[in-house]
């Protein structure tokens, strides 16, 4: 789906797979879904066909609160390829969601100098094209 391998200036975009289609559909609607295991109670990000803890397929999709904290971050000054060159410096964040799971994302509307560990952040999305919206975070 993505043609980033031939166009160095195109950002790599995800190609949703059978497991992840509902997750990406959620992002398109501005929602972050987590999978809750009805057998062991485990909560997981990202979507799979089965629970990572007990392999149950009895998974329920629930919308996350969207609240989280910055567990770690790194501000990229040297871009990984030409596609991200105009974005530097930009912060990649490892967010710990209120529900427990962590996820990788990046910040919007935030000066990278204002970032710190354990800061409260809030989930949002950024529309890239008709099919893909990317999960992002902003300071809460």
């Amino acid at each position: 789906m993505s043609n980033s391998a031939i166009d160095p200036f195109a950002k790599p975009l995800p190609s949703p797979d059978p497991d992840s289609l509902p997750l990406w559909e959620g992002f398109r609607q501005g929602k972050l879904f987590l999978q809750h295991c009805k057998d062991c109670g485990g909560i997981q990000y990202y979507h799979q066909a089965s629970c990572r803890n007990c392999q149950s397929e009895n998974l329920e999709e629930r919308e996350a609160s969207g609240r989280g904290k910055i567990h770690s971050f790194s501000v990229v000054h040297r871009a990984p390829g030409p596609a991200f060159k105009n974005d530097t410096p930009y912060a990649v964040v490892l967010v710990e969601l209120e529900e427990g799971p962590r996820m990788i994302s990046s910040m919007i509307d935030t000066n990278p100098d204002d970032l710190d560990f354990e800061l409260d952040v809030a989930f949002t999305t950024e529309k890239i094209n008709e099919e893909i919206s990317l999960p992002r975070f902003r300071l809460a």
Binding site: S2, P14, S20, S74, V76, V92, I104
Partner: peptide, 13 residues
């Protein structure tokens, strides 16, 4: 490709 690279995260990051 789905959960890391769209955010511009090189392995160094």
């Amino acid at each position: 490709q789905q959960y890391e690279m769209p955010f511009g995260i090189p392995v160094a990051n």
